[in-house]
Design a binder for these strands. Structure first.
Length: 260
DNA sequence: ATGGCAGCGCTACGCTGA
């Protein structure tokens, strides 16, 4: 089973790129971020024509997350993280698909730092850490996939010294990510490639993709009940080179079928 | 160190992103 995450940076402006990648990669489950579309403007028909059922949480202009599946309709279990009923951002959606609990997330960017946006990032991250602990406690096969807007280590940044004051590389954000790992979540891409330099995002500026000046900020974290099934994890970096493409590339994992 | 690019809503340019 192939599970992917992809920050599309505008699902309508990016629809042809998304469909092309879906046809090429044929992931079974996909978490999408940055739909940048209100709820009623999600291109459901085109997604269904491509063979996928979808649930989504839109928002005008910004944010927005979705879960796609071509192995049965996602059964929604949650929309938005617990802990702040006044949070208006569409950044978390969760569903049961094929015996796996799939959480798709778009963690706040947090820049500029310091400031209210950075405070919001850390508060949102705290809510994610708490919810992640509940999922671990439930001992279910689960995956938390999406744009975390955090480079976990210096290896995950093309030029770490340039990012020391940035919200994406802030010690507080990296510490929060580390707490997820300490709970038992496993960074799938890093597990398959312990030492490689791997990026999932390249800035539109400064010819960043051609220079491979990238960041690794899109992650798929596996609960302990899933880690034994991990057999591969890759970035479809070539998609970043397509016309009218997102600044992120799709990231995916392959899981073997459960024993029983 | 800075500004560069891109999508959206809207039809001019501000906001946001990373």
């Amino acid at each position: 089973m192939k599970i992917a995450t992809y920050n599309v940076n505008g699902i309508n402006g990016r629809l042809q790129v998304l469909l092309r990648w879906l046809a090429e990669a044929r992931p079974d489950i996909v978490c999408l971020q940055e739909l940048k579309a209100p709820q009623e403007r999600f291109p459901e028909a085109a997604i269904e024509d491509a063979g996928y059922r979808a649930i989504w949480h839109g928002q005008p202009r910004w944010n927005g997350v979705a879960i796609l599946s071509r192995i049965g309709a996602p059964v929604e279990t949650r929309r938005g993280l617990p802990g702040d009923p006044d949070d208006s951002h569409s950044r978390y959606i969760e569903a049961a698909v094929a015996g796996i609990l799939v959480g798709g997330l778009y963690l706040p960017n947090g820049n500029p730092k310091p400031g209210p946006k950075f405070d919001y990032k850390l508060l949102w991250f705290e809510r994610l850490v708490e919810h992640a602990a509940d999922l671990i406690a439930a001992d279910v096969p689960a995956i938390l996939a999406g744009d975390y807007n955090v480079m976990p280590t210096e290896k995950d940044v093309y030029k770490p010294e340039r990012w020391v004051d940035d919200a994406l590389f802030a010690p507080e954000a990296r510490a929060a990510y580390l707490r997820l790992l300490e709970q038992g979540w496993v960074d799938a891409l890093r597990t398959i490639h312990p030492d490689a330099v791997i990026y999932t995002f390249w800035d539109y500026f400064r010819n960043a993709y051609a220079r491979n000046a990238g960041l690794r900020i899109d992650h798929l974290l596996l609960s302990p009940a899933l880690t034994d099934r991990l057999i591969d994890a890759q970035v479809d970096a070539h998609v970043r080179g397509w016309e009218k493409t997102s600044d992120h590339a799709p990231v995916w994992i392959e899981l073997r079928d459960p024993i029983n």
